[in-house]
Amino acid sequence: MIADDDLPPEDPAAALRLIDEQRASAARQFEPDPRAYYWPWGLAWLIGFGLHFLYFSPGDAPLVDMPSWLPLTTLFVLLTAAAVFTAVAGAQAYGQVTGESARRGAWYGWSWGLGFLTLFVIAGRVSDSLPSDLVGLLWSALAVGLTGILHMAGGAIWLDRRLFLLGIWITVVNVLGVIAGPGWHALVVAVAGGGGMLLAGTLGWLHRKGRP
């Protein structure tokens, strides 16, 4: 008995079309949508650090008055939401795949976890002896700096140019922000950092849509 799908493709052109379509659709299934990876973080940075800038502004008075807990709470809530969103998108794409890339992803995840743990311990240890505007700068500069470097590392692991360039961009933006000082750092990270992530997601998405 020969089932329909046991028949050869009609002609070489049909075979090639089938190969191309199938490979492209499989690649889409095995890789998460870049928007799901970049946009939640970009928005969290844009809004979270944006509020930070508006309240803990350069100079003496807040640019916009709001409850003092709002900027930091918003940032943490949005970052947590972004983490959950990314984890779900990642699980959908990679959850049913095992092997080397799963190990790569897991080890990379550990690097993030231990990196941020280190950061919390260091910043927590020295925060008490710093003026409050520098405490804010220390925490956000360390966190953004680590994020930039881990993006670069991720780019190296997966040979993903977009990820690597985003890492460089975040690193440069962070350093410039630190030089500019407290308040300005939040503005630069919100606009250039968050904007860079949104752009990376958009470019990745366009690239993906452009494939057959």
Binding site: L18, I19, Q22, R23, A26, F30, V97, T98, G99, A102
Partner: peptide
């Protein structure tokens, strides 16, 4: 073709 889209040492 679908399996070929997986990285070399991966399984689905």
């Amino acid at each position: 073709a679908t399996l070929s889209a997986l990285p070399d040492c991966d399984q689905v």
